[in-house]
Structure formats: C-alpha cells, structure tokens
Design a binder for these strands. Structure first.
Lengths: 202, 202
DNA sequence: TGTCCTTCAATACATATGTACCTAAAATAT
DNA sequence: ATATTTTAGGTACATATGTATTGAAGGACA
C-alpha cells in the first residue's frame, strides 16, 4: 500500500530525488544517486529504490535509463477558502474572512489560504500578515521532512510549522528560536495542508 | 521565442516528443524516437535533434541518457520579465522567461513579475528565488517613501530596493545591512514598478 | 543544371547504466 | 539473546544509449 513509512536512508534518498527532479526535470541515474548519497557502490541505491517502489513512492521502466518518476500524491481537495492561521500558539481554523483573488487556477488543486499571525516562521521568510496558500494533504505519511505544514495539535490548535518525522513521532519546528519544537505522536497530529506558496499583498 | 521555424521532419519529431514527454513524464531515448518515426537508423534523429537544439526548442545533457527537455516558452499569465538583483549588481531585464499561472485578476493591473536574486531584501522577508509581482509606476514622484520598487540605475542595472525621496535626490535602500544605500539624482533613476505582492513557490 | 542543406541508411564504438550476485556490517525486530 | 531486515562494499556483465563517420538520396532554390 502506498504510504508505508520509510527508513532514514530511504527517506534521505527520496528527499534528494524530489529535489533533483524538481530542478533538473529528469531522473538521475543510479550512479548519480550513489554519489549524492556519498556511497561507493550502486547496490545500496538499488536496495533503497526497490523498497521505495514496493512502498509505492516511486516507479520506473525496467531496464531503461533515467525513467524514474515519483508517484504523485493524488489530491482530491475540498476547496475551503478559509482564513486564520497560527502563529505559534492556539488558533482557530474556521471562518472565511475574505476571498483570495486568484481562484481559477489555484482552486483546481483544492488549495486554500490562511493568513499568518505572528512571527514563528519568520526565519523562513513567512511574516506576520502574509497569506499562505496550502495544498491539502491526504497522506501525511509521505510528507518530506522540512515541509511547511499547517497542522492541528490537540491542546494547541492549528499551527504553521516545519514538519519532521522521527520514527513514530512527529516534530513540528517553528522557524524562530523563540519557539520550542513540538514533539508528538504521529497519531495525535492532523496535518491539514502543506505550503504551496506565500502570498504577500502590500 | 525559440522562434526559428522547423522543417516537416523536425516538426514531426518535436510534436511526438511533446506527446511522449507529456504522458511518460520522461524523455525517450534516441532509438525510441527512431522507431516512432519509422526509421531504421539513429542518424536522422541525431540530425533532427541537433537542429531542434540549435533553433532553441529542446536541450539535453550531453552524454547522459534520456535527459532531453523541451524549452518551454509561452503560457498565459503574468509575464516574468527576468531576474532582478536584489544585491544591487547588474542584471538582465528583457525577455519573458516564464509565466506565472495566475491570469485573471492580476493581468488587469498590468502587473509583471520578477524573480529575485540575492538576499539584499531579506529583512523585508523577500528571499532569494522569490517571485515579486510589480505594478507599473507611471509617476515616480508620487511614490511613498519606503515603497519597495524595482528601479534601473545607470551602471548598476535593475535592482529591488526601498525607495526614499530626499529633495532632488533618490535614495535606494536594501533591507540588509550588508548593502550600502544608493543615492542618486532623481533624473538618473528609472523606477519601473512597485511591489504588489511576493510570491514564493515551494 | 548544379549547389547546399536536410534526410536517411548502415555501421561502429565507447561508455553510461540498470541489474545481478556475493559477502559482511549495522540496524531492527522478536 | 537470536532472527530478520536493511544497508553497505565490491565486482561483474549485458545492453541501453549517445555519438561519430561515411555515403547516398531527395528537396529547395538560384
């Protein structure tokens, strides 16, 4: 089943693959992966790739070079154009305050928007008053480490943080040293969306 | 525009490439192209590819398998006019490189977009790689002090700065202590646009 | 007509590349 | 503890693949 969790080595490779494909627009070769991972033999990469494939994260054409592709997370979004966001503390997550003037294209992906209160993400250049466009997350288990997400934490409300997986735990980190990371069991967290873009009207 | 026109054979290959890449999500190999074109030798494909590349329609990594990509051009949306140096150095500012997918509303105002290079505006939370949407400025004399503008300074190129008027002088300030303000006669500066929004794709 | 460019064929070649096999250490689970 | 899985190193191999070369045929055009 797609979405099975990954080991550290697998996650590391996957994250790198996403980056590489994002800016090269084509798949790397196994030996490129090998070098990027600092390995001296292709076998470990083969192993990781096999596991990533078995777990449904990637696929490729056997025997054909550089045909690896990411298995995209399929999004079937319910467009909720809500506003209100999380600084670092408790926040609500309901009312529609205004409508972003960019419907057409964006709504196709089921994006929704949040206004950011507070400066907990300031070191990631997300400032108070910014509008963040979020893409719904259906399968939190395949989020990449470091992704900016909006997540609901029991007792804390909804908050905007960097997402890290650590075994069965989830760590939510602000981009501001004044805020302590939150560590919590993955089952306890509801990740609502991941950052698609930052929008700042001036 | 890649512009230069294609021969029939070149066009036929290009069209097929577009289709193939669209549904396979990776580049075909030369021999796959060969078969698809009904040829029995790779040489004609090599020739067509070379021409397509010279005319600016495709590109690839030499020696690496299946690294061909289409050189994208025209979409609809806000024209991205180029990269702007936040650093204060020389930059280009000419052809449309890509377009932002946000048609409707934005184009009404004649907005245009720039990608930001460098970190000179970092304290205003405009980061390297961000896309800034600019609204054309017709009358620079009515700009408010502190407005973020893109301005062309003789000898420095186009740059993104906070705008301040000081008598007959104009002062352009970065949002980063590492950069010195620029003071210059108002007549010498061409303010092209003022910041309308910051857009950060992630 | 004849010149130039494109296209095609056929072949050759070096290497980029996926894959297989074996062993061992390390991590994880039981 | 033991068993299982994952990761790593090393090596080997078949072939997928980009590229070079040579020659000839077709088309466009003056």
């Amino acid at each position: 089943m797609p979405g099975e969790s990954l080991t550290n080595a697998q996650q590391e490779l996957y994250d790198w693959l996403v980056d590489f494909i994002e800016d090269q627009h084509h798949s790397p070769s196994i030996r490129q992966m090998m070098q990027a991972m600092g390995l001296r033999s292709p076998a470990p990469i083969q192993s990781r790739l096999r596991h990533l494939q078995e777990k449904g994260w990637i696929k490729w054409q056997e025997g054909q070079a550089r045909t690896l592709q990411l298995v995209e997370e399929r999004i079937s979004g319910v467009p909720v154009l809500g506003a209100i966001a999380a600084g670092g503390l408790v926040e609500t997550f309901d009312d529609v305050q205004e409508t972003l003037d960019m419907d057409s294209v964006l709504q196709l992906k089921g994006l929704f928007a949040l206004t950011v209160n507070g400066d907990s993400m300031i070191n990631s250049y997300i400032a108070d008053g910014d509008m963040v466009l979020m893409e719904p997350v259906n399968d939190p288990s395949r989020l990449r480490n470091g992704t900016v997400v909006s997540a609901m934490v029991p007792g804390l409300g909804t908050t905007l943080k960097h997402f890290f997986r650590d075994g069965s735990l989830v760590r939510l980190e602000a981009a501001n040293p004044d805020y302590e990371p939150i560590e919590i069991d993955a089952e306890q967290v509801c990740v609502q969306g991941k950052l698609a873009a930052v929008w700042r009207k001036t």
